[in-house]
């Protein structure tokens, strides 16, 4: 665990010392602000809880976008600059490398989520919503972010190019989102399969202020599969 934290701390410092982390967060925050004004606040006579639900709806997509951008460099950059050879030749396990990298990105993503909180705070100040609704929405965003970061870590393990990593992870994440739309135009049992596989199908209850264990488990499972796959890819690289 000491090694995992060591890697996570170095990685987090790298986000803070280079401009990339700030630029990504600033860009996505700007888009969140626009979406909040253009969509969540749009419409006369809307209930505060609907505004909040709309905010979480848009935020989920932008959080995924942010997660893809934050994770694309994690392993791809190490391979491109060949610093991965330092990690490979040190007494650390592949899962420690992957977990350390993932945790740093998760920490940075949490920082991003905290900085979006002024928007629900405004809704709370000028309307009437429960703290539980806000907490449930943020738990959902954190879980969506975590699952997307894990997919992003996997994408980043596949290639040296950060752009390619972002494209691969983006395609996986968007496909998992589109599953929800497919579930609406297909018949059972496919509609149910698509629904159960989809990010949004599992996120929607959080948006409404509901926390179900099964949805939490879904996102944790996707996170696990993403990180496990990334570890396997790292292992396989040594045979090439």
């Amino acid at each position: 665990m000491r090694t995992v934290l060591l890697i996570a701390r170095r990685e987090l410092a790298a986000y803070l010392r280079t401009m990339s982390g700030y630029v990504i967060i600033a860009g996505v925050l700007f888009m969140e602000g626009l979406a909040f004004n253009a969509f969540a606040l749009y419409g006369a006579g809307k209930k505060s809880s609907d505004i909040l639900a709309d905010f979480f709806y848009w935020s989920s997509g932008l959080t995924m976008f942010c997660a893809i951008l934050l994770s694309m460099r994690l392993l791809a950059e190490e391979r491109q600059t060949r610093t991965i050879e330092l990690l490979y030749s040190s007494p650390i396990r592949d899962e420690e490398i992957v977990l350390g990298k993932f945790l740093s990105a998760l920490g940075f993503l949490a920082f991003f989520l905290v900085s979006t909180s002024y928007m629900p705070a405004l809704v709370m100040a000028y309307g009437k919503v429960s703290l539980g609704h806000v907490a449930s929405g943020y738990l959902g965003l954190f879980l969506v972010g975590s699952a997307t970061l894990a997919i992003g870590t996997f994408g980043s393990s596949l290639t040296k190019s950060q752009v390619l990593a972002a494209i691969v992870s983006g395609v996986i994440a968007v496909s998992l989102t589109i599953c929800w739309l497919l579930s609406r135009v297909t018949e059972r049992p496919f509609s149910e399969i698509f629904m159960e596989a989809s990010f949004y199908g599992h996120f929607k209850p959080f948006e409404q202020g509901l926390v179900h264990l099964k949805h939490v488990v879904y996102f944790v499972a996707v996170t696990y599969v993403g990180l496990f796959s990334a570890t396997r890819v790292l292992e396989a690289r040594r045979w090439r």
């Binding site: 170095r10 410092a13 790298a14 010392r17 280079t18 600059t81 060949r82 610093t83 991965i84 050879e85 330092l86 030749s89």
Partner: peptide, 14 residues
């Protein structure tokens, strides 16, 4: 072991 690859594995921002 201590290993120095042909390209030193350095993090420029550190």
């Amino acid at each position: 072991i201590g290993f120095l690859p042909d390209l030193p594995p350095l993090y420029d921002e550190m």
